[in-house]
Nucleic acid binder design. Sequence first.
DNA 1: ACGATAACTGAACAGGTGTTCAGATCAAGG
DNA 2: CCTTGATCTGAACACCTGTTCAGTTATCGT
Lengths: 199, 199
Amino acid sequence: MARTTGSHSQITGPRVRAVATELFAQHGYAAVSMRKIAAEVGVQVGALYNYIPDKQTLLFDLMQEHMDALLAALEDDPDRPPIERLNHFVRFHIRFHHGRSDAVFIAYMELRNLTPENFARVEQLRKRYEDSLQAIIEAGRDAGVFRVADAKIATLAIIAMLTGVTTWFRSGGRLSLDEIEAQYWQLVCGALGASSEAS
Amino acid sequence: MARTTGSHSQITGPRVRAVATELFAQHGYAAVSMRKIAAEVGVQVGALYNYIPDKQTLLFDLMQEHMDALLAALEDDPDRPPIERLNHFVRFHIRFHHGRSDAVFIAYMELRNLTPENFARVEQLRKRYEDSLQAIIEAGRDAGVFRVADAKIATLAIIAMLTGVTTWFRSGGRLSLDEIEAQYWQLVCGALGASSEAS
DNA sequence: ACGATAACTGAACAGGTGTTCAGATCAAGG
DNA sequence: CCTTGATCTGAACACCTGTTCAGTTATCGT
């Protein structure tokens, strides 16, 4: 037999990406074979190549989609007060990454498995995201509401701190996502020498 | 030919571990074959098994050694003021991890490639390290010098923030290690609501 | 009802995987 | 100087790797 009953491109296509995301996050890109992905999708290996050109491109596409979605979802209004922009960024970052932990994991862990060209492109997207936080911090520093020695370092430190949440937070634990947000907001504010009461 | 001139266990043994550390960090455990390690060491594959029982144990040993060294090097004196203990922890963390970025990378990225038993053992060591920071934070909070809502979250946030340094810091860059230390000390102090002038 | 084509199978390709081991070779102790 | 044992080679084992493609089948527009 060949084509199985009820199979559609619109089902199989997204499923391949979903399965790949899950397996890559769990075992790592190099440790996951095309046959394992196919088995999980419920299809033979060859069928995968109706939806992806090759394994490397699959990985790159997953990363790029994640970064694109991240950048598209972030809304920053330069006209608002820096403290409000920061508050929005912190809460956005935690909320957006929560529930997408697989994609976050891949985007941070599998960079070394990208070809140099693909790496450069993903890295560019990441830099754009970092720059948006750095702009907020610089605006706050210039306005005199943040006390920070080096905006670049503060940016990297805060993003590392916030992204760390995805490695341990699971819904239904000791604390709710709202509480997590509030705590991290306080930590970030303190780190930047701002009062967390505002905004 | 078989045994080559000038080959010694005392040279080859450590070299295998050094090469493995480098390659695992660069390409990932699953992407590095025993043959690639052997080639880099300058030996045939079979020879590696004079020094390691198998690939999995090699990975585990590298991680365990790193964590053991980390725990052994950390000196914390519960009798000193919390602010001093925190200062020492922050500077120690940054200094210890700097120059060992390969081992740090492996210890954080390759956890999923450990067998369940090995994972549990490494995780226990990591928890012990986290607990030592948490103890400092709790001591400071009880003494009224730190203002922190949840000690566990503050611990995870700070460790994530500090460990992030290894992903971007390289000697000879814009800032020296001393400057990095000072900046992170300020950030950590602020996050915990303490004055960074002390200690 | 039927022809076109999207969707899939099954097999093959050339090469890579971790691990084992008999045999060759060199270093060192008596 | 010669034996002993550590050290390494080279080949083999059974299996897995990403990718391709001729052939088969289900679906859909007409």
